[in-house]
Amino acid sequence: MTEAETFPPVSRDRRLALLGAPVESGASRRGCAMGPAALRVAEIGERLRRLGYAVDDHGDVAPQPVEGLELPGKARDAAAIAGWARVLAERTYGLLQDGATPVVLGGDHSLAMGSVAGVARHCAEAGRELFVLWLDAHADFNTPSTSPSGNMHGMPVACFCGEDGFDGVFDDAFQARVGPANVAMVGVRSIDEDERTLLRKRGVEVVDMRAIDEWGVAAPMREFLRRVKSRNGVIHVSLDVDFLDPGVAPGAGTAVPGGATYREAHLIMELLYDSDRVVSADIVELNPFLDDRGRSAVVLAEMTASLFGQTILARPARPVS
């Protein structure tokens, strides 16, 4: 398979594959399991079809049974999370192998352990470098030994970056990792103390809200995209609803004030589409029980449409250099 066939551009003749992951075992509050259904009610598939894509909704996955897994330190429901991670790794890998672009609908953010693992395996086999754009109020770089709560939705980045403490989550087929220097976190405004120390040691790029207040989102995004292009890399986008300010999207179980505005978020999505580098995505942590008449679900569906090319006016194709 040639490089072009392995990673075709996300043009409108490329198939998008929606995959629900109603996992909430990693979160401290129940309700995320309703997220995939709420996104479908918000017409996420229909919005993408109106852009000209062939969209296949593969329904919701079910976790693989994993018995007896215990991780050292604090890691609540580790066996359940491993069950979700294993099936999601297999499904995202298989969809990419089949030429589709997986869009995982969550579900709490622990699902990214699996989705990114599958994408990383595909990229490793294709000889392409994978970058992850983490749009989140939280860094999610805790490990079982650093986490104050043990909630595993605060651990996925540490897991797919290969930190210690996650042995047994995957079998040998999904051991590909993402280099910490290939992770860019944007919109972060809540980091635990030990997590902060680990992020600095590993060299993860963190664009916090202070940086966005000073420089806006365009400058750091363009720098990130230039770096990806210079390495001929591809991007997995992981979008947590709490990346947005709670006034824009209240349906978050771990909402933090002072998040991204509606237009800042859409500009990021539009720049990502222009880059022609996005090969997969997660839309996570939507808790309809905490939402206001479906407002957050609609915002996330609109942002996903922007990620795949919806604009106010027609623009020159992919101007990012």
Score class of each variant (00 low, 15 high):
Met1His: 14
Met1Asp: 06
Glu5Val: 02
Phe7His: 09
Phe7Val: 12
Pro8Lys: 12
Pro9Ala: 09
Leu16Arg: 03
Ala17Arg: 06
Ala17Glu: 05
Gly20Glu: 00
Glu24Trp: 05
Ser25Thr: 03
Gly26Gln: 13
Pro36His: 06
Ile44Val: 02
Gly45Met: 06
Arg47Gln: 00
Arg47Asn: 05
Arg49Thr: 15
Leu51Tyr: 12
Asp56Thr: 10
Asp56Gln: 15
Gly59Arg: 10
Ala62Arg: 15
Pro65Met: 05
Val66Glu: 03
Glu70Asn: 14
Gly73Val: 13
Lys74Asn: 07
Asp77Arg: 04
Ala85Pro: 08
Arg86Lys: 04
Val87Gly: 06
Arg91Ile: 06
Tyr93Asn: 02
Leu95Trp: 07
Gln97Asp: 14
Gly99Ile: 11
Thr101Arg: 13
Gly106Tyr: 15
Val116Asp: 00
Gly118Pro: 02
Gly118Thr: 05
Val119Asn: 07
His122Lys: 05
Arg128Thr: 09
Glu129Asp: 15
Glu129Lys: 11
Phe141Lys: 01
Asn142Trp: 14
Thr146Asn: 02
Gly150Lys: 11
Pro156Leu: 02
Gly162Ile: 08
Gly165Ser: 09
Asp172Met: 15
Gln175Thr: 14
Met185Tyr: 00
Met185Ala: 09
Ser190Trp: 04
Val206Asn: 02
Ala211Met: 07
Ile212Thr: 01
Trp215Glu: 04
Ala218Phe: 11
Pro220Ile: 11
Arg222Val: 06
Leu239Ser: 03
Gly251Thr: 14
Gly253Cys: 04
Pro257Leu: 05
Ala265Gln: 08
Glu270Ser: 12
Leu272Val: 00
Ser275Pro: 02
Ala281Asp: 03
Asp282Phe: 03
Glu285Asp: 10
Leu290Ser: 08
Gly309Phe: 12
Val320His: 11
Ser321His: 06
